[in-house]
């Protein structure tokens, strides 16, 4: 008969007090005729086995590309490959620093991303509080279902819709503005408007989805807190500021810290589908720049260098955000 360590643990007849660890190991070895490692392997091999396909795919599609980063230090020539291309040290990075538009590209990225983070926090919280004030459950649910509809559509479709709606000649948005005597504005073709249109349309797409988490936090606030506040003479507005918001604070802090990792993600899919050469000045972000350099102009080494810089900075921000989320909101990834 085989007695496994795990079985012993379940029944716990041999606790630490009655049998010290060495004695238990001794017992196991005698019963099974195996040493410790073999026994662990016997017990755990199915768990290793289950991870094989996942690990294989992660190695192939995440870790192998990470090795491809050495291209950033090469003058990469496609038909010579990674091993045949000559190394040129930090030249790609020098090129990057000397590139005239690079400062603007980093500025655009962070400008759009930070505005998106701020608006993406403020709007869903406000809407969640307002939705929570609705008394009829079915009205609340209907509104909720409608507001996160855009979240489920791709930026390709939404861009098609936005281009149509915002068109200066026939778009419905400019027609409505026309009623108020505003001259047609070419929202997607003007450097003054473009970044703000990106932020507004991103908020429009994502705010409904964002309300889900905040609504859940709202419903878990103890109702007796509101009653106590009302007894103390707090009106609705004071209740919102002194009961609702503090009750939501942990989840707000969590969402904010997790979003810090996104400061270099200004939204490639959205901007790529909506921008055009006339607005590159205000619209070009790191990801679109990497795409144009790498895929369209085949400057693999240079594009990889730009991408690497972004990956490193993002890595620092994402790590920081997880550390902060752990410290401030006790959030753990796994």
């Amino acid at each position: 008969m085989r007695v496994y360590y795990s079985d012993v643990e379940i029944f716990e007849p041999l606790s630490e007090q009655t049998f010290p660890l060495t004695a238990r190991l001794q017992l196991n070895i005698e019963v099974n005729g195996m040493n410790g490692l073999t026994r662990i392997w016997k017990r755990e091999w199915p768990l290793h086995f289950m991870l094989i396909p996942g690990l294989f795919l992660v190695l192939l599609f995440s870790y192998v590309p990470m090795a491809g980063i050495i291209m950033a230090f090469q003058k990469y020539v496609p038909n010579k490959g990674l091993f045949g291309s000559p190394f040129i040290g930090m030249k790609n990075f020098q090129l990057l620093i000397d590139y005239p538009d690079i400062g603007r590209i980093f500025f655009n990225t962070m400008f759009i991303a930070v505005m998106k983070i701020a608006a993406g926090l403020f709007v869903p919280i406000t809407i969640a509080i307002l939705l929570n004030e609705l008394r009829r459950e079915w009205i609340k649910r209907t509104f909720q279902t409608l507001v996160y509809l855009p979240h489920f559509m791709s930026w390709v479709l939404l861009s098609g819709i936005l281009v149509d709606i915002l068109s200066p000649s026939s778009g419905i948005f400019n027609q409505v503005l026309g009623w108020f005597g505003v001259k047609p504005i070419f929202f997607l073709g003007s450097n003054d408007w473009f970044p703000y249109v990106m932020v507004a349309s991103d908020v429009w797409k994502e705010f409904g989805f964002g309300t889900i988490v905040y609504l859940a936090a709202l419903t878990s606030i103890n109702p007796s807190l509101y009653e106590a506040a009302a007894m103390d003479g707090a009106g609705r507005i004071k209740q919102t500021f002194y009961v609702t918001l503090p009750g939501m604070m942990p989840i707000i802090v969590l969402m904010l810290t997790l979003n810090i990792g996104n400061v270099l993600n200004a939204g490639f899919e959205q901007i790529f589908n909506l921008y055009s050469p006339p607005v590159y000045e205000s619209a070009d972000i790191i990801d679109t720049f990497v795409y144009r350099m790498g895929v369209q102009q085949a400057q693999f080494g240079f594009a990889t260098a730009v991408g690497l810089l972004k990956s490193i900075v993002s890595f620092l921000f994402v790590s920081l955000s997880y550390v902060l989320a752990y410290r401030l909101a006790n959030y753990r990834i796994f």
């Binding site: 590309p65 990470m66 090795a67 990674l82 795409y291 991408g307 972004k310 790590s319």
Partner: peptide, 21 residues
């Protein structure tokens, strides 16, 4: 093992190396 998976969220090789892979 968990970190092997989580690390892929934190850091990536980028567009071009993934494409070439």
């Amino acid at each position: 093992y968990a970190w092997v998976f989580v690390f892929t969220i934190l850091f990536s090789g980028g567009l071009i190396p993934t494409y070439l892979t």
